[in-house]
Design a protein around this nucleic acid. Structure first.
Lengths: 395, 395
DNA sequence: GTTTTTTTATTGACAGCGGAAAAGATCCGA
DNA sequence: TCGGATCTTTTCCGCTGTCAATAAAAAAAC
């Protein structure tokens, strides 16, 4: 699973140790006994898994004295020492690069971004390298080593081989990005699709903690979706999955750039909304914020556009839920700014289209600021570092 | 995972042994070396896993001498002894019960069915028991013990607890079927959703062999779908998944019994087609076969209905493929009789709606006769018997 | 104030799984 | 007949996680 060119990470963890570590990462400080219960490992196994990790400093004891149950020997809380290692996460978009320095608990310590001057690998790679160097210098101030670099890119990415197969925004094909960035920065590099990376972060540290089946839907310039099934992120046999933006919802709907009609993205993504609000109000809008202002100002045409978009998103989520039956769906993305306008449409359409018990699925929203994508990249680096690529949680 | 009331199965298999057995079950006779390569186990591990299974008679050596590579020590083929054990699979529909006696390779030996007189558990259970008894008597003729019973039922089924949570056709709620059938027949019982059971069979013995991500779509009285992701059948957090029949494809489409508009099932399932053909031709049809005859006879109205249905199915499959990116989709079900009428619509709609590399997905048809559903139930029994409930294939 | 109960943590012994390496088996070709 | 190739088995060994017993620490009971 890990690319062959990965530098040395933690002295290879046994499966149990990896499980214990990941459990502690997601579920805050826990007593050893509690870890044992959750992972279905024996208490002895937990003790033995914890010790070496503690000697290496990745785990620490007694974070804060909890209100413990009144009786019995008091428990010692174990938790991950967030400051023990640093990771860099980089998100590459069509016109800028965002990078964050994150600690072992994937909390953002420093955040940077630069505009892109070109989209060819020859332009992007130096930009990434420069930004990483900046963060490496910042990292010196923390007195801890940076142990990995994660890069998130939209498109078809082969994480196992560190290869960007095809990225429409950047117009890249078969770029061995992990190797290139690895030699340029000297760090172990993990490359993954951006939505999948964000999903990993959400699965470990966000609203997906403890769930083995959940989905993350991002609404904004495009509409994307990351899926976790059986406790693992879905990649698809051909490297592409979660293309919720191109579910076809209406054979008579607007034409989508993919050539089909009635895609969610052709109804509810920013450009589509912009176009529809322009048409409805007769103005020439150029920025999604203008459309949003119009709608918030009460313009009925604009509001109707947002209502339609919300309905499309709701129906798309219902499709997803009908197929996979996840426990929870998280809606996020820049489009969340318009959530008050979407909300009713999403709720009603979801309720109407979700079938049977699928409607019990918890649909929630969660604002994920733009650094969050880079944080997702850092999370993939942590995954690789800890060798928990194939981590699967017990119920 | 296995229900607590399960009787003794094979002396608990080690994970490696389970993996080896399952590999041999799916991929015919193989040499030990080849098994080792496929499972990424060492040759030594394979030998050690094979021996006890061979002593128990579940595996046999030297099925038929293959054309071996010219050089080196000749290989000994190992294969599963199909005749070493028998299993019974039962499929319960709204108005009949189908049961098969299957061998260890899940090949059907005897097949029976009876009409149901009532739908309450008090009527269905004795019918199942009687049919199982018949097959148990048949089994005596083979001189081998029946080692398990699988029951497949549509609806929300909790396999781990042997519980039918809710079955709309039978109007059952929370029936502990595994326990009931277990005490009535004296066999270890596995209960699962019917489409999931069929998917298991297809995954192990059919068109899904060797694939870790594939989907099975059944077209007929209803439209259902079983999913395999990460090498395991998807059950959904709330027990329901694969409800492809209720993907909403057209907000102005026909009303579905679920209350929504434009569901695939409201366009392409037998009752919907019957209704639409009746309306198009002005006749009062009562049997899907009549509609089919009309279309095959060239009636343009009827043909248009089938074309629309095919288009709906194609778009639904595209949705599925866009979301999950499986390697293959198998279309089956009684509806396959009309496949020549569907085909073009499915192909065109799929090609139009599938996004990017997702369109590389292999969409194929495969006739699965009605006993196949019962065979799926038998496959779940074999799974439980061999403890490979959580089997996951290596790439 | 001492003892009992209860829960957590640790230790050491232990079974067993699977890997590494080497030896054995059995063919082909020279 | 020997050497090479490939499959299979054996032997040995490290390592993992469980078991059972023990220590620790606090509250509760007496």
């Amino acid at each position: 699973m890990r690319p062959t060119f990965a530098r040395e990470s933690v002295p290879t963890l046994t499966p149990a140790a990896s499980l214990v570590f990941t459990t502690l990462l997601s579920h805050g400080p826990l007593t050893r006994a509690e870890v044992g219960r959750r992972t279905k490992l024996s208490p002895a196994a937990v003790t033995k898994a914890v010790r070496p990790l503690m000697e290496l400093g990745y785990l620490v004891e007694g974070a804060d004295e909890e209100a413990r149950p009144a009786v019995g020997r008091p428990a010692n809380l174990v938790s991950v020492d967030a400051g023990r290692a640093l990771f860099i996460g980089v998100k590459v978009t069509g016109d800028e690069i965002i990078a964050v320095l994150a600690d072992l608990c994937c909390r953002i310590r420093v955040s940077r971004h630069v505009a892109l001057t070109g989209r060819e690998p020859q332009a992007v790679l130096p930009a990434i390298t420069a930004l990483v160097q900046e963060l490496l210098i910042e990292a010196v101030g923390f007195g801890v080593q940076v142990r990995g670099l994660g890069i998130a890119i939209s498109g078809d990415v082969d994480r196992a081989n560190g290869l960007v197969r095809y990225s429409p925004f950047l117009e890249w094909r078969d770029v061995p990005l992990a190797e290139l960035a690895g030699t340029a920065t000297g760090l172990p590099v993990t490359v993954d699709n951006d939505v999948r990376a964000l999903t990993v972060a959400e699965h470990w540290f966000g609203a997906g903690v403890g769930l083995s089946d959940f989905a993350l839907v991002t609404v904004g310039a495009g509409i994307g979706c990351g899926l976790v099934v059986h406790g693992r992120v879905v990649s698809g046999a051909h490297g592409v999955a979660g293309e919720i933006g191109h579910l076809s919802l209406d054979p008579r709907g607007p034409l989508c750039h993919c050539g089909n009609r009635g895609c969610v993205e052709a109804i509810a993504a920013d450009p589509a909304i912009l176009r529809a609000v322009s048409a409805a109000t007769g103005r020439q809008l150029t920025d999604p914020a203008e459309a949003l202002d119009l709608a918030h100002g009460g313009d009925p045409g604009a509001r109707a556009v947002y209502a339609r978009a919300g309905e499309a998103i709701g129906r798309a989520i219902a499709s997803l839920v009908n197929l996979l039956g996840p426990e929870r769906v998280v809606i996020s993305g820049e489009g969340l700014a318009a959530y008050d306008l979407f909300a009713e449409g999403i709720r009603d359409a979801f309720a109407a289209s979700a079938f049977g018990t699928a409607s019990q699925c918890d649909v929630m929203t969660r604002p994920l600021p733009f650094e969050e994508w880079a944080r997702g990249a850092a999370a993939t680096a942590i995954q690789s570092f800890m060798g928990s690529d194939t981590y699967e949680e017990q119920p």
